[in-house]
């Protein structure tokens, strides 16, 4: 099996998984108490509007027909009408996707890289105070309650020392000023992203560090490490060229497996820092009983996680020839 068929296979799996998820959502909606369409209808709507929505969703027709309409609407990116915003769901969500991806991917990638780097050091200096310090720090940051960590960061760095903004993604004055160049705007976003990024980073890097440390210790006992040492390689090269590429593999796997966990954290962080992403939109939609918006946000997040999973798998296949050349 080469890389192409591998990617193709995984992509088909993603499409199937996604299909299962959206079908489940459809049937759960029918199973939930009350009329299904009541979730799409707001008390402020006029009778005409209600009739229109019922017709659009085919609610007067058979459930199978409704299902087909549901799928068709999703394909057309028509997620329905958000009562809270009073606009189409897609219009609410579309410019939030990038914000979520920005925060999510940077924090996952940076924490994995730092975890691998520090885990390597911890394994290399095992049973020293440095190792103990890194291990304890990882245990603590990895199990800290994320929203609380966010609140602490806001309190300390945002409020007490006024180093970073308390919330949001940009300063309106800067973005409205036509004079401001791209760099200025980018720096402004980074300034806003610092604390949410930091809290996600702190939560994640410890897990990767601990995993990398164990994986590295296991790898160092492998026979090919002995071979490398026998060949007269420098210790540095043994670690970097032979141990690292093997020891990092389980970490990459775990990045994939923990993506769902990471996106949970992403939604919490977005909420705490008022970061305008899909996760926060989902949380708010649920508190506003805005079901169409909640459903769309959830489906989008599911897509993001599924695709990220494929990317991780491709990366893994790229790093491990045993997968690439089956």
């Amino acid at each position: 099996m080469n890389l192409k068929t591998f990617i193709l296979k995984r992509s088909i799996q993603v499409v199937i998984s996604f299909y299962v998820i959206l079908s489940l959502l459809f049937f759960l909606l029918r199973l939930s108490p009350g009329d299904p369409y009541s979730k799409y209808i707001d008390s402020d709507m006029t009778q005409q509007e209600i009739e229109l929505i019922k017709k659009q969703m085919g609610l007067d027709k058979h459930i199978f027909y409704q299902y087909l309409i549901y799928i068709r609407n999703l394909i057309k990116m028509d997620f329905g009408y958000s009562f809270h915003y009073g606009t189409h769901v897609w219009d609410v969500i579309k410019n939030k996707i990038l914000n979520t991806i920005l925060l999510f991917t940077t924090s996952v990638i940076v924490s994995a890289l730092v975890g691998i780097f520090l885990g390597r050091i911890a394994a290399w200096r095992r049973n020293t105070s440095l190792d103990a310090g890194l291990t304890i720090a990882s245990l603590v940051t990895h199990t800290i309650f994320l929203p609380w960590l966010g609140l602490l960061l806001i309190w300390i760095f945002g409020y007490k020392f006024e180093l970073f903004p308390l919330s949001g993604i940009y300063t309106p004055e800067i973005w409205l000023d036509p004079e401001c160049g791209f760099l200025r705007k980018a720096l402004d976003v980074m300034h806003h992203m610092a604390l949410p990024f930091l809290s996600l980073f702190l939560l994640h890097f410890g897990g990767y560090l601990l995993l990398m440390r164990n994986s590295m210790l296991g790898t160092l006992k492998e026979d090919y490490i002995l071979t490398a040492r026998a060949k007269g390689l420098r210790e540095k090269d043994i670690i970097n060229r032979h141990a690292l590429p093997n020891a990092a593999l389980p970490v990459v796997t775990s990045v994939g497996l923990s993506l769902a966990f990471s996106i949970n954290g992403g939604a919490l962080t977005e909420t705490v820092f008022s970061w305008p992403g899909i996760g926060r939109e989902l949380v708010m939609a649920v508190s506003h009983n805005d079901y169409p918006l909640a459903q769309a946000a959830f489906l989008l997040i599911a897509i993001v996680v599924l695709l990220a999973n494929v990317l991780v798998d491709i990366l893994y296949a790229f790093l491990d020839p045993r997968i690439r050349y089956e």
Binding site: A260, F261, I263, N264, V286, Q295, F298, A302, V305, N309
Partner: peptide, 13 residues
């Protein structure tokens, strides 16, 4: 691949 917390949120809604 499903984020449990968000699933529960949707179910809650």
């Amino acid at each position: 691949v499903l984020p449990t917390l968000l699933v529960i949120l949707v179910l809650a809604s």
